[in-house]
Design a protein around this nucleic acid. Structure first.
Length: 288
DNA sequence: CACTTGACCTGTCCGC
DNA sequence: TGCGGACAGGTCAAGT
């Protein structure tokens, strides 16, 4: 689920909630959700204080006072929800989309010394939490290979074109979903930005002009900034650090809008399969 | 090598 | 209602 805007929303939310807290205990009953050896957790996670929270691509990095970092990937259905007290439980006006925690999809529970908790929920169990020495995080395979952050100002249109053109043999949608080309684009914002740039997702990279690619980077930035502003997209599972939904889907132009009119030309939006993913396209605005 | 497909999991929805 | 199959926001290993 979570793409760059969702992970960034979680990062911002958690920063205001757990920085400075000291970890008292960690519970994790599904081994793949937190595969570290128990003695590493005992030595470097228990007793550590949260010092900062960073994001790279769709990966969240929670730095600890022990010079270890919790590296977290939410994959499709991961959630990180903080609960201080129960004032925001069911029935409260500020009601969370997530009910009482832990629940049946809770994989990891972090308990802080002040009695509050951070819950890692993950229905499909694809996500994970791993503890690494902070200094080694940049050596992780994924971190070595992942492409530039789209919202970094020093990432240029020219560099974007060069990186996309390394995938000349495939479709433009597959190219921007490739995390080694550009970081953080997933299925929602791929479809949304390709619609914005009037590029058909199944177009071969070699058939897309440099001008179109310039527009595409602008659209990626536009939809991601808008999505961060709206707190991300909640289709089914995604929630922020307080368990609340994001509202980007109210502003989506094509994603999950098959059979509805294109907001630009009123043509009915179609759903097909491109790069192995469900793909939403306006067949008139986005000519292949 | 470059690119595509299957696997990892649980849950939901849709057609018969 | 019940059952089988397709599908769901990501990424990597295995296959072509």
């Amino acid at each position: 689920m979570p793409e760059l805007p969702e992970v960034e929303t979680v990062r911002r939310g958690l920063s205001g909630l757990i920085i400075g807290k000291r970890i008292k205990a960690v519970k994790h009953d599904w081994p793949k959700s937190f595969p570290n050896a128990k003695n590493d957790i005992d030595a470097f996670v228990i007793g550590a204080k949260i010092t900062s929270i960073r994001r790279r691509a769709k990966v969240l990095l929670i730095d600890l006072s022990t010079d270890y970092t919790l590296v977290i990937h939410l994959k499709m259905t991961g959630q990180l929800v903080f609960r201080g007290d129960e004032r925001f439980g069911a029935g409260h006006p500020n009601e969370s989309l997530v009910g009482k925690l832990p629940d049946k999809s809770t994989r990891v529970i972090v308990t802080f010394y002040d009695g509050s908790h951070l819950y890692f929920n993950d229905q499909r169990k694809f996500g994970w939490v791993k503890a690494y020495p902070t200094i080694e995080v940049s050596n992780i395979d994924f971190m070595q290979r992942v492409g530039p952050e789209p919202l970094e100002e020093n990432f240029t249109h020219q560099e974007f074109v060069e990186r996309v053109r390394k995938r000349n043999g495939t479709t433009i949608k597959a190219a921007i979903l490739d995390q080694t080309v550009i970081a953080g684009v997933g299925n929602i914002y791929a479809d949304e930005s390709l619609w914005g740039a009037k590029i058909h997702p199944a177009s071969h990279v070699r058939d897309v002009s440099d001008t179109q690619l310039h527009n595409l980077l602008d659209e990626i930035r536009y939809v991601m900034n808008l999505a961060i502003d709206k707190g991300g997209s909640t289709d089914k599972n995604y929630v922020n650090a307080e368990g609340k939904r994001g509202s980007y889907m109210d502003f989506a132009r094509v994603f999950r809008r098959e059979k509805l009119p294109c907001p630009r030309c009123v043509t009915v939006i179609t759903k097909t399969r491109v790069a192995g993913r469900g793909t939403h396209t306006c067949p008139v605005c986005q000519v292949q």
